[in-house]
Nucleic acid binder design. Structure first.
Lengths: 182, 182
DNA sequence: TATATAATATATTAGTCTGATATATTGGTC
DNA sequence: GACCAATATATCAGACTAATATATTATATA
């Protein structure tokens, strides 16, 4: 098994827990996986068709609903494929922050403009941290309901620790830039 | 000016500071920008040709060298383009960690395997932190040499704070998983 | 000195993913 | 009744990666 096409694995991971439509998969990625993963419809829908063709998932239409709803279910082969992938070593962890890129070139734009980029970053971080703190609370409240919750919580704790560090850095970075500006 | 093709801006940012070949640009990205940006030759070389075609950079052959060396220099239009881009708001900061993805699906693989993924992540983080601490030291030693160094240092400080937080999380995450495993 | 290996240097391609767009339905609000 | 937001699937141009090809030069080692 080559360690490839991450989308397949993400989808199988989500389907492992519950049946989903492509639209619902996108929603899960945009909420539960938000701060460490993303995906567009342009990769989700083709990947779903591909999974069905390879026998890793099945597709059925939702009768009883007027919407053009297509529900996907993982197969046993799909579960095996997922487990094989989980056992493989991690290939890549990537951080790609345009904010840091603009900061790196800060000498070309000056302290003031750089500080305003940091301000935006700080505000965004604060909002996302707030969201994660709420997620932490609700996960802790229902930790025993589902063995998976413990693992979800771990990713949330990662986010909280990371964002805390970001906010600390924002404060210090701005201080350093302001001292020099005067 | 549409806020697009990040590669162009990265290259212009680097060329703003010094003349470079495509190969050297790749090296800069792999070292100075390493932990917050990456790029492949497949995007660098075409982007360089494109920049020349648009008049944002010029290309000349390195005579006096047997190697097929092509040196790129930023133009005034290139500098203006860079400054316009720097003034625009940041479009996207993205974190894409396969480690967290496998962690999120941890319930399908169990605590032991999850811990081993964390171990690998911890080791990798420790190594990169070591590298950043050395970079911090040498930047602090020559801070006054170049106004740009202050900005480089800020990105390094960001990395150090972040990686410190990662290591703290690794410890706590493993403790939580081990307690439950016994 | 010969030879292997690592580093330098440019270039291209298959395959993957994003961001945008198109289309259509359903539910709620004013 | 009109409007908007959310639901739902699908496609495509353009961007980027990982891999590969090719060739030269510097360095270590036997």
């Amino acid at each position: 098994m080559a360690n490839e096409k991450k989308m397949d694995c993400v989808i199988l991971g989500l389907l492992c827990h519950e049946e989903l439509t492509g639209y619902e998969i996108k929603k899960r990625i945009n909420t539960a996986l938000k701060f460490f993963w993303s995906a567009s419809y342009g990769s989700i829908y083709p990947a779903l068709n591909d999974l069905v063709n390879r026998g890793l998932a099945t597709k059925r239409e939702d009768t009883g609903n007027k919407r053009n709803k297509l529900i996907y279910t993982i197969t046993d082969e799909g579960r095996n494929y997922l487990k094989e992938w989980l056992a493989l070593p991690v290939e890549k962890d990537e951080l790609r922050y345009e904010t840091l890129l603009k900061l790196f070139f800060g000498n070309e734009q000056g302290a003031e403009q750089t500080i305003s980029h940091i301000d935006v970053f700080e505000e965004k971080t604060r909002k996302e941290l707030q969201y994660l703190l709420e997620a932490e609370k609700s996960l802790k409240d229902c930790l025993s309901d589902d063995g998976a919750h413990k693992y979800y919580l771990l990713t949330v704790e990662f986010g909280i620790k990371t964002y805390d560090a970001y906010l600390e850095w924002c404060k210090e970075a701005k201080k350093l830039l302001m001292d020099n500006g005067e």
